[in-house]
Computed example of a mutant assay.
Amino acid sequence: MEKRGIRMNLSGITAKAHTQYALATREVENSMRRIAEGRPDLNSGDKARVGRMNTTLSMLRLANSTVKQSQDLLETAESGVSSVNDVLTRLREIAVQSSNEDLTADTRAGLIDEFNALVKELDYVAKNTAYDGVELLDGTFGDRDVIIEGTGETETINIELSDLTLDGLKLTAHTVTLESGDSRIGQDNGQGGTYSEGDTVSVSATSIDSANDADDALARIDAAIATVQAEASDVNSKIERFNFTISHLGNMITMNEESLATILDFDEAAEMASLADFQIRQQTAIAMMAQAQQLSQTVMQLLQG
């Protein structure tokens, strides 16, 4: 009876030590996993919150990316519009100078050369202002909707870009109605007669070849400048709107990221301290099992002796 009682007592100690070892080992493994992942274990409620917040952040980031791309497109267009406006401003200055009938032939020739070169440059800028392979100012862009899908109501912003080429600004072939004082009045009209006041004359392109041509060019350039400035105003207003939208989305992203970080906050120092404690318990359990085993063998030897 005494032998069996001793064996049962030692077996109980061994079983208890083994249980403590298993518990400590599990905690060590969990602690090491948390340290490796860099995040705490979450309860079901926190897991649900993290899932919702990640979904919200994904939608906000996508919306922010969409708006930023549209803003970049408009800023590219704005640069092109500004360049076209600069060219038109210089063309107007030249047209004003050329409207003077007292210009020498050499002076007018120099102005004509500069004017024609700038006209080509204007058309080049309008036809080569592009974003991500999309032409913006050559008349092919038209109007497009930017759809912003945030966490609430979907917002749609329309972007429309005008044709700022020579054709779009009506600076190419056109007709002119002759007014009193026009130098072409009385000249051969190519149809067996001469031009009279009120006649319509076809002009191949805006030019400053004469004072009258310069006056006509000036009127057409003024109209083109008005068109370009209206375009610049519209583009700038859209850019400002996108700036506010980007700022708002950025604030929402930051707040959601901070809230998510609070839930997933991981105190590595505290976890390392817990790991050390669990490892001590694990080693203690191992020592208890070894001592129980050794004691059992010693008792059995004494009883047998």
Rank of each mutant, 00 (worst) to 15 (best):
residue 2 E to M: 10
residue 3 K to T: 13
residue 3 K to Y: 11
residue 5 G to E: 13
residue 6 I to M: 15
residue 8 M to G: 07
residue 8 M to Y: 05
residue 10 L to C: 08
residue 11 S to M: 12
residue 14 T to D: 08
residue 14 T to H: 10
residue 14 T to I: 08
residue 16 K to L: 08
residue 18 H to Y: 07
residue 18 H to A: 13
residue 18 H to L: 13
residue 19 T to H: 11
residue 19 T to A: 12
residue 20 Q to E: 13
residue 21 Y to M: 11
residue 24 A to E: 08
residue 25 T to K: 06
residue 25 T to H: 06
residue 25 T to W: 02
residue 26 R to Y: 04
residue 27 E to P: 02
residue 27 E to K: 06
residue 28 V to K: 11
residue 28 V to Y: 11
residue 29 E to T: 11
residue 29 E to H: 08
residue 35 I to H: 03
residue 38 G to R: 09
residue 39 R to S: 13
residue 40 P to D: 12
residue 44 S to I: 03
residue 45 G to V: 14
residue 45 G to H: 12
residue 47 K to H: 02
residue 49 R to D: 09
residue 49 R to H: 09
residue 50 V to F: 04
residue 51 G to M: 14
residue 51 G to L: 15
residue 51 G to W: 03
residue 52 R to I: 05
residue 52 R to W: 01
residue 53 M to V: 00
residue 53 M to R: 09
residue 53 M to W: 00
residue 59 M to W: 03
residue 59 M to H: 04
residue 59 M to L: 10
residue 60 L to N: 04
residue 61 R to E: 05
residue 61 R to K: 13
residue 62 L to G: 07
residue 63 A to L: 00
residue 63 A to E: 03
residue 64 N to V: 00
residue 66 T to C: 02
residue 68 K to I: 04
residue 69 Q to C: 02
residue 72 D to V: 00
residue 72 D to E: 08
residue 73 L to A: 05
residue 74 L to P: 02
residue 75 E to Q: 11
residue 76 T to V: 01
residue 76 T to Y: 01
residue 77 A to Y: 03
residue 77 A to K: 07
residue 79 S to K: 10
residue 81 V to K: 09
residue 82 S to W: 12
residue 82 S to A: 15
residue 83 S to Q: 15
residue 83 S to N: 14
residue 84 V to S: 06
residue 85 N to L: 11
residue 87 V to D: 00
